[in-house]
Design a protein around this nucleic acid. Structure first.
Lengths: 137, 137, 137, 137
DNA sequence: GTGGTCTAGACCACA
DNA sequence: GTGGTCTAGACCACA
């Protein structure tokens, strides 16, 4: 369910945080369900419990989970919707930032469109193989 | 010519590095020309000279500038082309990474296309006002 | 009679303890009467029996109940008066602490009075609707 | 400027957090100013640097401070207003909660008013000696 | 020098 | 068993 990339420059606690958001958004961690305990997850991922605590605390502050005394952390009501929305916004921001920086650097509009289209086609082929470009029409 | 955003999460030396690449690609820093000296730039930007050294060293390692003993750093022959290409590749990588991460997170293809199209339209309006969508045909 | 808020930051054993005090003060648990057995209450509230034991032990130490061998716990003579007084003192302490902390933080006297008056009015309306502000004169 | 009560049940990092909010609200830590560095404060208070990090991170997440690369943490624009408002709301919530709990426990309105008035008088005498009850009219 | 992350290990309250 | 807090110490990037 969770897995860590130790080579990544993204901090471990943030990897856990993001994955939890994806798992909640996908329904793999349904609302009301206990998530892995701090100690268990730390043991399974072979990392320090405090690192898990840091990730879970961030999720708690984002109103995605809450502590159940003596039992562990539970996914909040409404967390799924929040995670889905957050995921969309994060993607939107990254796209807009990337395009804006390129435009600010005076990349030509033709180059920009060409690169974006090529990247989209590549992604469709790789991740959505059953779909072809233009299917949505 | 150069300016630093101290609030940004991008390290200062990297901001200098990227801006130098843009300035070279745009011809603002033509091949063969001396770029600002370490001390002068550090003073003008109110930053630590070591930070400028770090940026210039990276540019030297990328074959974009070379030291002219006793005079300073000069833009290399061929640097303009390299910078243009680097700029394109950087943009391409960011686009592909962003899309791939969203796809890996099972964002629907419809959502992805919608967000990308909206972002493109927004950028065109803001940065390329003389162009309308579809102009390239 | 008893009910637990599992989301609350107040420990479950303390919730039981406080509720018992209220029930005794209100006469819902009259002096001399058996209170629910540890097992029964634990079962009814779906909590760990040890948690009930902890609450009852605290009540015993406060001289509010005593064990009747083989039968359970009984409300002490004089417990009602003690609970009433404890309730008043608890409230008084909380009020004084809250005001003192605000004063130590240099909240202005005007703001303090305004907030306290508004809160009182709100409470009167919500909990003592038959009374109007000033009725006590 | 900062001081820790090691006897208190309030976690050290939360004591720091609250005090910082007071200091910002009072203008003792003006907007734009560097606050004590993590290591310096930790040394001065004789606590572990990580504990300070925890407090500062919470302040950063609350948009009260931001990190200046290599220099330390700076009080944000607008932080003073946020802190003042937060202080008022915190006080208001505590007052309302305290009264509501007492009312739910069927404390009589007379007792409630008496205790609140006495507490206010006590506070005025102790913290606002130059003022007498009724001065505001 | 600054902050950011992580570890190993401890002790606590609570259930 | 659960989470919450704290310590001592390490290593990193950045300025």
């Amino acid at each position: 369910m969770f897995h860590i990339n130790f080579e990544s420059s993204i901090p471990i606690y943030e990897q856990i945080e993001r994955q939890a958001q994806y798992l909640i958004a996908n329904g793999a961690l349904p609302e009301g369900q206990l998530i892995p305990s701090v100690r268990e997850l730390a043991k399974r991922l072979a990392i320090n419990p405090l690192t898990v605590v840091k990730a879970y605390t961030a999720l708690k502050n984002a109103n995605l989970i809450h502590a159940l005394r003596g039992q562990g952390y539970v996914v909040n009501e409404g967390a799924k919707k929040l995670c889905k929305r957050a995921r969309l916004e994060l993607f939107q921001n990254r796209v807009e930032d990337t395009l804006a920086e390129a435009a600010a650097g005076r990349l030509s509009l033709e180059d920009m469109r060409e690169i974006v289209d090529a990247a989209l086609a590549k992604i469709v082929e790789q991740y959505y193989p059953e779909r072809k470009k233009g299917d949505q029409e």
